[in-house]
């Protein structure tokens, strides 16, 4: 590594299966724990969000129609790809956050395991959260969980990779598509994760990843009429009120989570009831 010129990576956005720069042309600087410059990731604008919503909306019916088995397999595939690039992720987490290598390795391991865990939920959702309801008449009556549509999520500042997984995986496992705003201070692993997604058979538009400022993008997510649900787990508590009231205008489902459990999946599902005559 002595006299070789550094090949620096350009961190871009991930929208509709492609890696565009921000339409605004803006970037911001991130530095490591010691204050040394690392990279210039994109500073996404509201128009990047708009483009991502268009992509997510277009991808949603197809992703929703994929079988539970297929969705689970694709999530598992993401875990496989992430496992194969673990050294890169460890290195990026260490360089940006300054935590020890051991801790970073633990985060990456947990991230892989977390994806596998969410993948497993895919074909169990309808039997565990749906129901065959007893009714007084010659009918079957089923309650089945259905996807909500396009969900936006704000990933926490840290852990940057594990938090990102928790923002993405539970949303898409139920058939939703997602636009996630990554950690502002530590966006490197998010953009490397986009490369993992791009090589994991995830259809274009199902996962879209933006990097930028949360207080700039969150209000646009809340007021956007074509976003059905919003996960604000990663947004500072003082901004929650404004975002919730902006989202109330368009009946958006807004949730904040502090643990990884099946409620994260169920929050973005709608339970729908169908009647079916017996004997037909």
């Amino acid at each position: 590594m002595s006299n070789r010129i550094d090949v620096k990576k350009t961190y871009k956005l991930y929208i509709n299966g492609a890696f565009p720069r921000s339409e605004s042309g803006r970037t911001y600087e991130i530095k490591d724990a010691k204050g040394v410059f690392i990279a210039n990731p994109c500073l996404a604008s509201r128009k990047d969000l708009k483009d991502a919503v268009v992509a997510a909306r277009a991808a949603q019916p197809g992703w929703n129609k994929a079988s539970a088995y297929n969705k689970g397999q694709i999530l598992y595939r993401i875990a496989e790809m992430l496992e194969g690039r673990r050294t890169q992720f460890v290195q990026e987490i260490v360089s940006v956050t300054g935590i020890t290598k051991v801790k970073a390795e633990k985060e990456v391991t947990e991230s892989v395991d977390r994806i596998v865990w969410y993948a497993g939920w895919s074909d169990k959702l309808s039997s565990l959260s749906g129901a065959l309801n007893p009714v007084a008449g010659p009918y079957y009556n089923f309650t089945v969980p259905e996807s909500m549509g396009v969900i936006a999520a704000i990933a926490p500042e840290s852990p940057s990779l594990l938090g990102l997984i928790d923002a993405i995986a539970p949303v898409i496992v139920g058939g939703n598509t997602v636009i996630v705003l990554a950690s502002t201070k530590a966006p490197l692993s998010a953009m490397s994760f986009a490369e993992v997604v791009a090589t994991s058979d995830v259809p274009a538009g199902v996962i879209n990843i933006l990097t930028g400022k949360k207080d700039e993008i969150a209000p646009w997510m809340a007021s956007h009429m074509d976003i059905d649900g919003l996960d604000i787990s990663g947004l500072g508590a003082k901004s929650h009120g404004a975002v919730r009231s902006a989202g109330a205008e368009n009946l958006k489902r807004i949730y904040s989570f502090n643990s990884a459990d099946p409620s994260r999946i169920l929050a973005f599902l709608e339970h729908k009831t169908v009647w079916h005559p017996i004997g037909l």
């Binding site: 509201r46 007021s223 009429m225 074509d226 205008e249 368009n250």
Partner: peptide
């Protein structure tokens, strides 16, 4: 002042 949805 906010983005519209094709549903409308």
């Amino acid at each position: 002042g906010y983005y519209a949805s094709p549903a409308y």
